[in-house]
Design a protein around this nucleic acid. Structure first.
Length: 569
DNA sequence: GCCGTTTTCGGCCCGACTGTTTTCAGTCG
């Protein structure tokens, strides 16, 4: 079996930490597992290599006991100790950890005092008002947990785009390698590059429908499928719904129909009706119509240019296409350089040199280094002396490397009152300043908005980092009036970040058209905390494309000389 | 369970915020 990913191993270590806490083991022992989880997730080295050479033992926080367990995990994909531990604690309790407000102590309390072992029971206990009255619980806690369960249920069954697309590609590869399958294409939400997805949807062309089942069996999914006419339905290893449309050949009609969205298709149909055009995309409703070889032909029949899948959301793209105002969407190849990168100076796991080298290797022509500022103590934020140190290191590195421009930056905290984390004379020493909110997430909307607007008015601030602070599938963004923030960015000539980290994708694509309309530029930033993080840029490009942005809307499509000049202004 | 030695076991760690308290515990980043 394939070796588990770092993320999967880190998750197991975190689960063990929680299980130990629930079993009343030493909190320090749990902590050791939590620390190990972070270490594993943060390491840039290949785990198989580390285990094979025994160097796993050299990682910080990995002693003999953890090294043995990691070795077993990496080699066999399983861990007997973990399996045994799981047998002694109800599975629902571990699941509860994903509910906001439910930490180890609260989970232990509801289990021991109320006998609750599942999320469903917990929800029912909230409704019956039974949490109030437990020691350490009150009505506000119960409300928070009730809200947390609501969010939990909403995101259950969903995965991040970055996670889902990996599984989708693996399935497509499995189908392609099966005999008798001519063509496989991705459709549905993932083809439209939605930031999260609960379904992997494929279309498969074959004369032998049974070969699809064989391909899935080879992928270990044989027992999870039912056939419903030309559609196979099942569940993927990650728990995503799997929908596979099987046809003799793949028509553009089928591609368009299965790519969606529902709103986009409804609007296309209405447009066809207005033109008295027979519009039939599905086989079961008579012959396909209009005749077409490609999706572009179908749009042409409606007097429209091809609308890229990312834009097909029914949010005005058809009207824009009609007016001839569809943007020529930005691509990953257009990105010339990258801002917002962390190093070991704060909470990154790669050195300045390693980050620059990797950016070079990926073909970027400039890289902006921006570690955390001093009040981000949890991330080893830089005090003024360490800023000077880093600037000296960058000066030295600039002399040694050619072909890439290294920019001195900082991700500076916006303090609660909207002032910045350093005095102006310190901020003036950077080539660029990313202003970000990292604390006081639950200020009232008016206060939060004013705080960010004040930061945008600061003369040394270049751009706003992760504008809403959301973490997809885990944390809502803070309450903030983004319309006002965008207006402030316009007024002060500031850039908004599209944070490309798959967990963030913030600015949301739904807000991009408003920024574009006002002439506010965005920067697609990896927010990399490791060399691997530099590869997240395409996820940010997806957001920009869904938001209808073109090269001219994205500042880091500028040439090095142009960006240097722009930053000087 | 890890670490760092004062080599054999004691200390691990981080502060803000919230909600529950009446001086603090739990969660979160």
């Amino acid at each position: 079996m394939a070796s588990p990913t770092k993320r999967e191993i880190a998750q197991i270590l975190e689960d063990i930490g929680l299980l130990l806490e629930l079993k009343g083991e030493s909190p320090f022992k749990s902590q050791a597992y939590y620390n190990a989880a972070r270490t594993i997730e943060g390491t840039t080295e290949d785990l198989v290599q580390l285990v094979a050479t025994g160097r796993i033992r050299e990682l910080k926080g990995i002693g003999q006991a953890l090294a043995d367990k990691l070795t077993e995990l990496v080699r066999t994909g399983r861990l007997a100790y973990y399996e045994e531990l799981k047998r002694t604690v109800p599975a629902g309790l571990v699941e509860m950890r994903a509910i906001a407000g439910m930490g180890p102590k609260k989970i232990l309390a509801v289990w021991q005092l109320l006998g609750i072992t599942t999320v469903g029971e917990l929800e029912y206990a909230c409704i019956e008002n039974r949490l109030v009255g437990l020691p350490g619980f009150g009505s506000k806690t119960q409300d928070k947990i009730k809200q947390g369960i609501l969010q939990f249920k909403k995101r259950k069954g969903f995965q991040l785009y970055a996670t889902a697309i990996v599984e989708a590609r693996a399935l497509m590869a499995a189908c392609r390698s099966a005999s008798g399958i001519r063509q496989v294409d991705l459709v549905g939400d993932l083809r439209r590059r939605m930031e999260i997805a609960d379904t992997i949807e494929l279309v498969v062309a074959t004369d032998r429908p049974d070969s699809v089942g064989q391909a899935l069996a080879a992928h270990g999914l044989d027992d999870r499928f039912v056939e419903e006419g030309p559609v196979l339905r099942g569940r993927s290893a990650l728990g995503l719904a799997l929908v596979i449309h099987v046809a003799r050949s793949l028509s553009p009609h089928l591609l368009l129909a299965k790519t969606g969205s529902a709103q986009h298709l409804t609007q296309l149909k209405a447009r066809a009706e207005a033109r008295r055009l027979t519009w039939n995309l599905e086989e079961d409703g008579g012959p396909l119509s209009p005749p077409a070889e490609t999706e572009a032909d179908l749009y042409r029949a409606l007097d429209l240019p091809l609308i890229q899948p990312e834009l097909r959301e029914g949010l005005g793209e058809i009207e824009a296409a009609e007016r001839g105002e569809l943007a020529h969407l930005v691509t990953s190849q257009d990105i010339q350089g990258i801002f917002h990168n962390h190093t070991t100076a704060s909470d990154g796991s790669a050195t300045l040199e390693e980050m620059v080298e990797e950016a070079c290797r990926l073909g970027y022509r400039y890289i902006g280094i921006s570690d955390h500022s001093q009040s981000a103590f949890y991330a080893h934020g830089l005090k003024e002396d360490r800023i000077r140190e880093q600037h000296a290191a960058i000066d030295a590195l600039r002399k040694r490397v050619s072909g890439i421009l290294i920019l001195k930056g900082i991700e500076a905290d916006i303090l609660a009152d909207g002032t910045m984390d350093y005095p102006d004379e310190v901020l003036a020493t950077f080539d660029f300043v990313i202003a970000s909110v990292h604390s006081r997430f639950n200020l009232p909307e008016e206060e939060q908005t004013s705080r960010v607007v004040r930061a945008l008015a600061h003369p040394h601030v270049t751009m706003l980092g992760h504008p809403t602070g959301r973490l997809l599938l885990s944390r809502e963004g803070y309450r903030i009036d983004m319309a006002r923030v965008i207006r402030a960015a316009k007024e002060h000539g500031k850039i908004l970040e599209i944070n490309a980290n798959p967990h963030r994708l913030d600015l949301d694509w739904r807000l991009c058209p408003s920024a574009k309309a006002q002439g506010v530029k965005v920067s697609i930033n990896p927010d990399a905390h490791a060399v691997e993080g530099l590869q997240d840029v395409p996820f940010g490009v997806n957001v920009a494309r869904k938001g209808g942005l073109s090269v001219t809307d994205v500042v880091n499509t500028l040439e090095p000389a142009e960006i240097a000049a722009a930053l000087k202004q």
